[in-house]
Design a protein around this nucleic acid. Structure first.
Lengths: 340, 340
DNA sequence: ACTGCAATCGTTATCGGTTACGTTTCCAGG
DNA sequence: CCTGGAAACGTAACCGATAACGATTGCAGT
């Protein structure tokens, strides 16, 4: 079953072919300075032994590996969608991709995970990295592109137009007649979380609705963090008639809590999310949300990283992609009972 | 933007701490034989320099890395779902995950990709690997678990009950009154493709419907491969009233072709898929399909691999997971017009 | 025949970290 | 005061591959 055959190394090939490892290396990498006859010998030996060069060993010595890295904290729908876009951008580009994901999600070592992973890979293994929703700034020997960067970062990044997206979402609720709109915020350090909150405030203010701080719950994008916050909002004597959550994961949690509490959506409560993950379309009712094309985020990030690595780049280093509101069944006009 | 600060190596730490690299290594790995005072010095130096050990370098020498690998040919919804399950199983297990994906999907070098990737990683970087839908047998120094293995493989694997799943799907169509049922097969070398075809044949035979070989198209699970096959089937003088595709990706392509040809689904044509990828629920009409919980496949594969790597395992090495039929809008009774 | 240059190939240092082994230090026991 | 042995630490080989460099050979031009 588990064959314990020793790995075939370059020196094995060299021995069989009757040449030095240097020559084998030159043949493998298609370098100049090997006679046709020797090339044939080496190729035969490689074929015969089933030799494959070790990524690890070669990356240790080489500067370029033609491998890009992606590090992510957790691996939910969001990251999966991003990944599809990244793969698309890298398709037939000559760059392979290595994704590094740690197993301690939501675990003990949280702060600095991206730096840890990055240095582990970026030491020699990858030519550059994409970091998905970093929690802090990172330093690296090789180029790094952040998807959904930290607030105030000036490093290369790709992000959605969170401000406009959130504003549109809240305007949608206002347009339906909602006035008491709860908000569940995301992880504070992220630019996206901050912009979405700004959008929420801006839309209310523009509409002349005062912002009630007690209607704002502080989550961290982790769905679990939304449950107690939603419960707190909905158990009030004067509950909001709508809740805008800064991510779909959290919004879906709100739906769950509402169901538990016997509230009907959108009858008793309207819910809006942000992201448009695939699951948002599958719930009953479907979740109204802001689409930010995570696929596109991944695609653009990979494209940018490729350019940074190869050294040809002139576009701006901070890309902002448009968003669009997707209206589904989770939002409706508030019932009269819900109004003051 | 791109800081070109030289990476901090172990010898840097050693120099600052005034000890040898050997001692630093011992401290980092918590080995025996270092005085408390020296440990403190080294730790201080590590802290001060922000040192992180290089996965590449250490894996080259060490046998265990506590990193598991996953290699996949392409990266579509199927793989993404599997990945979520894998991550869940590895959560807080002490194993990190490295995913290796090549950029040449559907590209020039097809045959043997899994072996190539595997040897590149398995050389030293990972303690074991999961291979998603391998195209052939693989050999490796470290344990390998296949998800959706090749036909006839006796290596550790996790797969869905494709035979029963396919049988149920075709029985569903038969139950609706369909008699001319087309089939678009998957990649022949895979056990799953073979079982699904077997299920198709078995269901027809049991129902007393003769198997018409001209109604069987040979695809390869790649959605693109299904388009010409579907067109050929539907342009016949005597087209089938239903098509069962061996994967959702191909089934969705059938829907696309039907739309192009002006056929209504399920009015003129019923379509059934296999996999239940998220997209299957999003089309209009929704795709009737066989759910095989790719999440569960990933979860079980990771669990098995963990056990193989740590050497504690007693369960059978070949796991088969149940499937279930998910009926959506793409299937209905055939209209009289479609009957002979 | 000699020079000059390019082609060809082996030797060796190197990447960063691990570990077998050897050396030094230090203390307890005789 | 000497010895034994363990603890503490350094040295150097090593993992697999690459690349700078040097050495050798071949060949054309004069």
């Amino acid at each position: 079953m588990i064959e314990a055959n020793a790995p075939v190394t370059m020196s094995d090939v060299a021995r069989v072919a009757g040449v030095s490892t240097a020559t084998v290396s030159r043949v493998v990498n298609g370098h100049y300075g090997v006679s046709a006859g020797t090339i044939a010998q080496v190729r035969t030996a490689i074929e015969q032994l089933g030799y494959e060069s070790s990524l690890v060993a070669s990356s240790l010595r080489r500067s370029r590996t033609n491998v890009l890295g992606l590090v992510a904290h957790s691996f939910q729908s969001y990251t999966a969608e991003v990944l599809k876009g990244v793969m698309k951008a890298l398709s037939r580009s000559g760059f392979d991709l290595i994704i590094y994901a740690n197993s301690d999600l939501y675990g003990s070592y949280s702060e600095g995970w991206e730096q840890r992973h990055l240095t582990r890979l970026s030491g020699t293994l990858t030519d550059g990295c994409i970091v998905v929703t970093p929690w802090g700034e990172v330093r690296s020997r090789t180029p790094v592109v952040a998807i959904d960067p930290v607030r105030g970062s000036t490093a290369p990044s790709v992000t959605a137009d969170n401000l406009v997206g959130a504003t549109t979402a809240v305007e949608h609720l206002l347009g339906l007649g909602h006035r008491r709109i709860g908000f569940i915020a995301g992880r504070d350090s992220l630019a996206s979380a901050w912009s979405r909150e700004e959008g929420y405030r801006a839309a209310l203010t523009t509409a002349g609705v005062p912002v009630d701080p007690t209607l704002i719950g502080r989550g961290d994008f982790n769905p679990e963090s939304a449950a107690p916050l939603a419960r707190a909002l909905l158990q009030r004597a004067d509950p909001p008639s709508a809740i805008f959550a800064a991510s779909d994961g959290m919004a879906l949690k709100v739906l769950e809590v509402a169901r538990e509490m016997g509230l009907s959506v959108p009858g008793d409560l309207s819910v809006v999310g942000f992201d448009n993950i695939p699951e948002a379309a599958l719930t009953e009712p479907g979740l109204t949300t802001v689409d930010q094309s995570m696929y596109q985020l991944g695609y653009e990030a990979a494209r940018m990283l490729k350019s940074l690595v190869t050294g040809e780049w002139d576009d701006p280093h901070q890309i902002v992609l448009p968003t669009s509101l997707v209206v589904r069944g989770s939002t409706a006009a508030p019932t009269s009972a819900a109004r003051p």
